[in-house]
């Protein structure tokens, strides 16, 4: 029984690490702010939940009264992160969106996505868009 639990927890931890590897590579390699945010928000949360569950099973393995409490606390952290991590990612995304960070686009001509809001083609004059692009590029180059 204990052996089985052990293997199960190891599988959980390792799969969590795999997901975190994905998140990490995504944060490193994705081309723009919003896609990186996607990697951070999803991969990070899932990997945390998986590793935490694995650790909870690991702790509960010796079946003592106090270890159950500790396992519940670990799961509580998992739930806390499950709630807070997407929320903070969402809020940061909104902050970046309101600040006018330009998303990457396949549209070769205008290089602008049809997202609405500040990025709506009609709402921006060509000039200010160009300025924004150069500002972004400057920062990226730096």
């Amino acid at each position: 029984m204990s052996e089985l639990l052990n293997i199960f927890s190891i599988i959980l931890i390792l799969s969590g690490l795999v997901f975190f590897l994905g998140a990490s590579i995504g944060i490193l390699r994705f081309p723009d702010f919003y896609t990186r945010m996607h990697a951070a928000g999803k991969g990070d949360t899932l990997s945390t939940i998986l590793i935490m569950s694995g650790m909870a099973i690991q702790v509960i393995g010796d079946f003592e009264g106090s270890s159950v409490l500790v396992a519940i606390k670990i799961l509580a952290i998992a739930v806390l992160i499950m709630l807070t991590s997407p929320t903070s990612t969402h809020l940061l995304m909104k902050a970046g969106y309101d600040d006018g960070i330009i998303p990457v686009s396949k549209d070769k001509k205008t290089k602008i996505n049809d997202l609405g809001g500040p990025f709506l083609k009609d709402s921006l004059s060509e000039k200010s868009v160009a300025k924004k692009k150069t500002a972004t590029k400057k920062r990226v180059k730096k």
């Binding site: 944060i27 702010f33 990186r36 940061l92 970046g96």
Partner: peptide, 8 residues
């Protein structure tokens, strides 16, 4: 490159 990237 942006501040929000760093915070994320």
């Amino acid at each position: 490159p942006t501040a929000i990237d760093r915070i994320v």
